[in-house]
Design a protein around this nucleic acid. Sequence first.
DNA 1: GGTCTTGTTGCAACATTGTAGCATTAGGCG
DNA 2: CGCCTAATGCTACAATGTTGCAACAAGACC
Lengths: 165, 165
Amino acid sequence: MASPQPPYPASARSADDDVLRHFSARERIAARGGRVTRTRLAVLEMLQHGSHPLSHDEIGDALASAGVAHDRVTLYRALDWLVEQGLARRIAGGERAWRFEGVRDAAHRHAHFHCDRCGQVVCLEGLEPAPATALPNGFQVERAELVLHGQCATCGHGDEEARPR
Amino acid sequence: MASPQPPYPASARSADDDVLRHFSARERIAARGGRVTRTRLAVLEMLQHGSHPLSHDEIGDALASAGVAHDRVTLYRALDWLVEQGLARRIAGGERAWRFEGVRDAAHRHAHFHCDRCGQVVCLEGLEPAPATALPNGFQVERAELVLHGQCATCGHGDEEARPR
DNA sequence: GGTCTTGTTGCAACATTGTAGCATTAGGCG
DNA sequence: CGCCTAATGCTACAATGTTGCAACAAGACC
């Protein structure tokens, strides 16, 4: 169920870049009093680097192909911890599975686009979900999730090999 | 995992009301060339009547306590069929499970509020998710889903017995 | 560097939510 | 009433998480 294209393209980053990010991820984990373990480190780097939200499954595949040994449960727990610490965000991707994205600026939120054909999710940085609204009495809004559904550029392009769901 | 309060309060409807709705549901099913079976009928009535989206689980419980025998798989298929026919809508409720709501006006869409404490979902009739936005080139939006997260009136009321998730 | 403490991992088992295949039942038409 | 076939109701299975617990290792302390 993983996406065909690798969501963590190693070719796209330089060594410096990687070292910086590595340090940063390590520090961010340690700063929260958590132990720096290989799974947390690799996952956080991946999320910080990634351009779009990744599913647990995609992250697992990426870890595997990066040679990072890991357990399914450990990955779930690492992700939970990152979310808990505010280093990652969990979004409901339309399918049953959660998707995760790295958090750079805790204040900044954005909407997402879910392609109903290939299942891919992309961030819409420019679009902030509007939380201000008239709610029934006694309701307190903490955050808003806006997901647009439709067809992504790749799937609309006549690339009909994408899985039609 | 079903909600504590019955989502289909029989006490709240009159006999006339029920007869009318019953007829309506029966007709709406038949009008689409489907066979009127007890599960479809009961589910559609329940959704038409319900004030907020129900999970498969809640619907199953409600059917059971209404004395309508049904199978888990049949219920899934009945719901799928209703969605396919435009009689119901499927929304991603925040948890992994889908929720379903009856469709009165196909053109009308609204946002939802998900209580992160008790898991309940309510409709925000007044709030229409804004689909118009600047998307990357080639993207086609078909619909928008807006879900506000927070605490509902009941849970904010000091009713701390609600499951804290 | 060695040792200790305890936060994390890795495994196995289980829970929830949904699908697929297929024989049997029953809706509704003539 | 009888027939045709759409729906049902099994039983399996798949996908996505979660729980419990013994073993391990990160990092602090000496």
